[in-house]
Design a protein around this nucleic acid. Structure first.
Length: 755
RNA sequence: GGACCCGUAGCUCAGUUUGGUUAGAGCGUUGCAUUGACAUUGCAAAGGUCACAGAUUCGAGUUCUGUCGGGUCCACCA
């Protein structure tokens, strides 16, 4: 044996051997109880970050259960990551002086697909370098056709059950990225927004958005407000920057009498609260900002200006006309920003697909609260995160699952536009590249455009705008294209999280024969607490909805890994540390160990180089313990597996007996800690006892008196310690195991020392 | 406005679920030893009012209440 442990010589060949021998497959324990984990699929397009390295927790659980004899399956996968990936791709296009508008839909999709497929092996290679015992023969991606088929099936089921519906609603829309988002994706930021006090006839109201006034369809006051009683229900004649106009006054509880003047302008098309008010008072929706972020024709002379420019121009004009009473320049409010490009999001009315959440949320709450829930129970670790889970589900709003991006699973809703049923008007771009807003298709056909040309125009269009004359569009939900007549498929794609919410069962239903029957519900879902609401809660909801059973029995949540200074790692800050560089430097075992050592589950941790170095030295210590044993080897004695009980019987020296009992105790403790997901305590226990117990005292003691009897005990005890350390440090333990036992078989498929 | 987490050695963190000798680790600091199985390692030392104030208890780092400080999330602000 070399004097020093060199991980670079050991890790890669060992992983290859494990994989080639099929050790990662559940079939190594064909008769065991099933134990399964679905890997949270990393973005296929991006290299791993430290959050992914935390999946070491899953590998620990998987290796531990495999050694305990469970039929263990860990399924790898990749996420197409819809908008995220398209955003990255568009940035790449931009460096080439191109944009998404230069390509039609199919071409753009194909280009992104190629881009992603080219990058995917990077991520997968990294998971292998970390030693993860994933069954690669079962790997999946969220856009695999068989997965998409399941996603479509459940979308149809939601639709048939009245839970998926299409509606024109206000959505958070990024006019730069050209797509809407769900509530969760919006980030809020404190901004200084001047508050303008504007005269509306006899009334004065305060607003931060004077440019939206063209979309006002009422003003509102609180019904209890005695100051304005006389106006309620009346129509006011007001002077505006575009001349005189009439406006209704309504009374609504939503108005805070204390704020501003107690009078609010109601702009249903551009404000979420106002939209709600408009529904209560049956007010019309008047959109004055387009999806391109510019004022539209309703804004008169201001049409064509971007929102920011329009605000300045409108205020200037108002001041000229004496319509502004005062301006509070220091007013602070929170604005919604695009989480990707940080532009201010516009609330805009758009036909979108929504999922009704309340009926889905109820059983998901039940599944965590009630141990005897009919779906089975989900337990969250650490328990403190339950509150966050309930808080989300109890206040949940309908989920906007439409995204106006190309890279994703296209929504399988078809709209009939032919014959006498052609009730749907669609904006499209004609063969000359000219934009036809909301032009009836039939008219276009009459003007000589072919259907193919129209469809192509629609595909290239940035914002699909279906407008029905009736409330119910002529819709068909299908996974295949309808054949009769002229049909247009919805141009939107699903929110990535809509497909990922179905991941646990979609993978198992398609990964192998009987996988679903055997491994669903899965045993554990382990992920970062930051996506508890985005993903975990939605998986519980969709899992119960689609299968009647919870998707997993335990949720294990890890914290974030921050940079060495404690700051959150982010590309924009430039402080991202690549976990694979550290694997090269310290070895996978050391990186794995450092990530679980010294941090309680669910807590954030600071990336610590001293800790990594300590873990690396630990691997070296393990190596040298083995070297010592090897040097004292009694060549006539062949290694054989002996239980703790057998060792106790054969022990002669009193100290040997003591150390057998100690190792027995440690084994029980480590087992218990892993069972309770207390990995930091397991790691601490192993580090402390192996180094400062076994090595510092037992070996120092036995060194003086080694004989064949003591040698066998020493060697066997060390093998037991290697076994219980193996889930955390698979490489070095397996390598040493082979050296000390001469075994051909890997430690990873040996059995856990159960006592 | 609501919720959650954190505050323990110079630094980074365990320990709090289930209250019980002298509160631990890594790194750092100081001294000694060793070329040994260990590009080291071993032994030893210094270093803690466990944020603060109350309460419960025979006993509180651990349970409860409040305060202060740091962080995160949610809601929403016309």
């Amino acid at each position: 044996m070399d004097k020093i442990y060199d991980h670079t010589k050991v890790e890669e060949p060992l992983y290859k051997e494990w994989e080639e021998n099929g050790y990662f497959k559940p079939e190594v324990n064909p008769d065991g109880q099933p134990y399964s984990i679905i890997l949270p699929p990393p973005n296929a397009n991006a290299p791993l970050h430290f959050g992914h390295a935390m999946y070491v927790i899953e590998d620990i659980l998987v290796r531990y259960h495999r050694m305990k004899g469970f039929k263990t399956l860990w399924v790898p996968g990749a996420d197409h990551a819809g908008f995220e990936t398209q955003f990255v791709f568009e940035k790449k296009l931009a460096t080439e002086g191109k944009s998404r508008f230069d390509y039609d839909r199919e071409t753009l999709y194909k280009m992104i697909l190629e881009f992603v497929q080219g990058n995917r092996p990077v991520m997968e290679g990294q998971l292998k370098k970390l030693g993860f015992s994933l069954d690669w023969s079962r790997k999946k991606m969220t856009i695999d056709p068989e997965i998409v088929a399941i996603v479509y099936k459940n979308f149809k089921k939601l639709y048939d059950d009245g839970l998926a519906y299409r509606a024109k609603r206000l959505v958070n829309y990024c006019t730069f990225d050209g797509t809407s988002f769900s509530d969760l994706e919006v980030i809020h930021e404190e901004r200084k927004s001047p508050l303008y006090y504007i005269k509306y006839g006899p009334l004065v109201l305060a607003t931060t958005r004077p440019e939206t006034k063209f979309g006002d369809t009422a003003v509102a006051v609180n019904p209890k407000d005695t100051r304005y009683q006389e106006y309620v229900g009346k129509e006011l004649d007001i002077e505006t920057v575009l001349g005189s106009a009439k406006i209704r006054v309504v009374a609504d509880d939503m108005v805070d009498m204390e704020f501003g003047t107690g009078v609010v302008k109601i702009t249903p098309a551009h404000d979420f609260n106002d939209f709600e008010v408009s529904k209560r008072h049956d007010l019309p929706l008047k959109q004055v900002i387009g999806f391109d972020g510019k004022m539209n024709e309703h804004a008169g002379e201001f049409a064509g200006l971007y929102v920011k420019q329009a605000r300045r121009a409108v205020v200037e004009k108002m001041q000229e006309k004496g319509l502004i009473e005062k301006i509070d320049e220091n007013y602070q409010n929170r604005v919604g920003l695009c989480y990707k490009c940080k532009n201010i999001l516009e609330p805009l009315p758009l036909e979108q697909w929504f999922v009704k959440m309340e009926p889905l949320a109820k059983p998901a709450i039940e599944a965590v609260k009630n141990p005897s829930a009919s779906s089975g129970q989900v337990k969250i670790h650490p328990k403190s995160f339950e509150k966050l889970y309930f808080q989300f589900l109890e206040n949940i709003r309908d989920w906007n699952i439409s995204r106006q991006v190309v890279w994703g699973i296209r929504i399988p809703a078809w709209y009939k536009v032919s014959g006498n049923e052609g009730r749907i008007a669609v904006s499209f771009i004609d063969k000359n590249g000219e934009f036809h807003p909301s032009q009836p298709i039939r008219q276009a056909l009459e003007e000589g455009s072919s259907f193919e040309e129209i469809e192509k125009g629609i595909q290239r269009l940035r914002i699909p705008q279906y407008e029905t004359e009736g409330n119910q569009p002529d819709i068909e939900i299908s996974s295949t294209k309808p054949t009769d007549g002229l049909w247009i498929q919805d141009t939107d794609t699903f929110d990535t999280w809509f497909s990922s919410s179905q991941w646990p069962f979609a993978t198992l239903m398609t990964s192998g024969e009987n996988d679903y029957e055997t491994f669903y519900p899965t045993s554990v879902m382990e992920t970062g607490y930051d996506i508890l609401r985005w993903w975990v809660a939605r998986m519980v909801m969709m899992g119960i909805y689609a299968t009647g059973k919870v998707p997993f029995k335990h949720v294990v949540l890890h914290g974030l890994v921050n940079d060495p200074l404690g700051k959150k790692m982010s590309k924009s800050k430039g402080n991202v540390v690549n976990p694979l560089e550290l694997v090269d430097q310290y070895g996978a075992d050391a990186v794995r160990f450092a990530l679980v050592y010294g941090t309680a589950l669910g807590n954030d941790q600071v990336l610590s180089y001293p800790k990594l170095e300590a873990a690396r030295r630990f691997t070296n210590k393990l190596w040298n313990i083995a070297r010592f044993i090897e040097m004292n080897k009694v060549s006539s004695i062949k290694y054989q597996v002996l239980s703790i009980e057998e060792l106790k019987k054969m022990a002669i020296h009193e100290n040997d007996k003591i150390w057998i009992e100690k190792v027995e105790k440690w084994t029980l403790q480590v087992t218990d800690y892993i069972d309770k997901y207390q990995f930091n305590l397991a790691a601490d226990n192993l580090y402390e006892n192996i180094w400062h117990g076994f090595a510092d005292f037992y070996i120092e003691d036995v060194k003086q008196r080694i004989d064949p009897n003591s040698y066998v005990i020493l060697n066997t005890l060390y093998i037991i310690l290697l076994k219980i350390l193996h889930p955390m440090m698979p490489f070095v333990t397996d390598e040493i195991y082979r050296k000390l036992t001469g075994s051909e078989k890997s430690l990873m498929i040996e059995s856990w020392p159960i006592i």
